[in-house]
């Protein structure tokens, strides 16, 4: 098992390096002089040149990138143009908020989606199935920033149950988690349904039913376990979507997380901050995918045996 985890982990490292280069390259295309952004428009030519030399901005992009990455592995992501504080510090302050929100949203998504998908599959072509499928179809089409605003109109401005934004206590997390959770739930429901449908047609399910195993046990132990791989995969992918969707949800609900930090940084052309945010989020996403891969081995021993 350890060997398997190590092997998967080693495969992630080149991807993370690649991602950092890709993002670094894209961001470096930003027009304008970063030094002027840092020092302000009134800075003298000499001081500008001094900083340019110091940062190595006249060197080729690949050299600059290596400088950036060698600082990055030491935990130095540069200094924000806007706040003049280290990028890493701000990210560390904001990231837990985003992570917490992702966690709650994923919980909402799984709690809604997996049971609905199972019910839909076991009662295929019934009214329940149709209702679930249509709901999932609509859920997948709703833009989540709009959905968030609708929730604010009803539950916050209308009924006054939850705050319309901000980040204070558990109450402020309810609407954002529902926003992100239900849209993800739509996708996960569809995947659960189709994956379960494929499994319940298998012979071993019929055998289990024939030998008189309780129907619920058949679903839980025989069918669900074998249908889990695609479900776990889609949950992992949804995690990535959520990290991306955070940019929108945090804007809608004025939550001071990383998504918000990134949007603000882009608007004020704070390149080191944008770079730091995207690299962090992409790294987290890669690590989540790694966890999903490792989880496969626990779900399906056949996958593990390949790596022995």
């Amino acid at each position: 098992m350890f060997k398997y985890i190590l092997k998967r982990f080693l495969m992630v490292i080149p991807v993370i390096i690649g991602v950092s280069f890709l993002v670094y390259f894209i961001i470096s295309l930003t027009p304008g002089d970063p030094v002027k952004m840092m020092l302000g428009e009134e800075a003298s030519e000499e001081s500008i040149q001094e900083v340019r030399d110091e940062l190595g901005l006249d060197k080729p992009i690949i050299v600059q990138y290596f400088k950036y990455i060698s600082k990055l592995v030491r935990g130095d992501l540069g200094v924000s143009y806007r706040s003049k504080r280290p990028v890493l510090g701000e990210i560390v302050a904001r990231f837990p908020i985003t992570l917490k929100l992702t966690f709650w949203s994923m919980l909402v998504a799984i709690i809604i989606a997996v049971p609905l998908g199972i019910i839909s599959a076991t009662k295929q072509y019934t009214l329940t199935d149709s209702i679930c499928s249509v709901a999932a179809l609509i859920g997948a089409a709703v833009p989540n920033f709009w959905y968030g605003l609708m929730l604010i109109i009803w539950f916050s401005l209308g009924l006054g149950w939850f705050p319309s934004g901000g980040y204070e206590g558990i109450k402020s997390m309810v609407l954002p988690s529902i926003t992100l959770g239900t849209t993800a739930a739509a996708i996960i429901t569809r995947m659960t349904r189709s994956s379960m449908l494929e499994v319940v047609r298998q012979d071993y399910i019929r055998t289990a039913k024939a030998k008189g195993v309780n129907k619920k046990v058949v679903i839980r132990k025989h069918a669900l376990r074998n249908a889990l791989i695609p479900i776990v995969t889609v949950v992992g992918l949804q995690f990535g979507h959520m990290l991306g969707g955070m940019v929108l949800t945090e804007t809608v609900f004025s939550i001071p997380g990383m998504g918000r930090l990134m949007v603000d940084s882009i608007k004020s052309k704070d390149t080191p901050m944008v770079l730091g945010c995207i690299i962090t989020l992409a790294t987290v996403f890669s690590l989540v995918n790694l966890c999903i891969d490792i989880l496969y081995a626990f779900i399906d021993p056949r996958i593990k045996s390949v790596y022995k």
Partner: peptide, 21 residues
């Protein structure tokens, strides 16, 4: 492998990075 790198960045974040640049 290059495609894998692109896939490792959530779609909308990649699009945001490109537009911001």
């Amino acid at each position: 492998r290059v495609m894998d790198i692109f896939l490792a960045v959530p779609n909308i974040l990649l699009a945001i990075a490109i537009v911001s640049a």
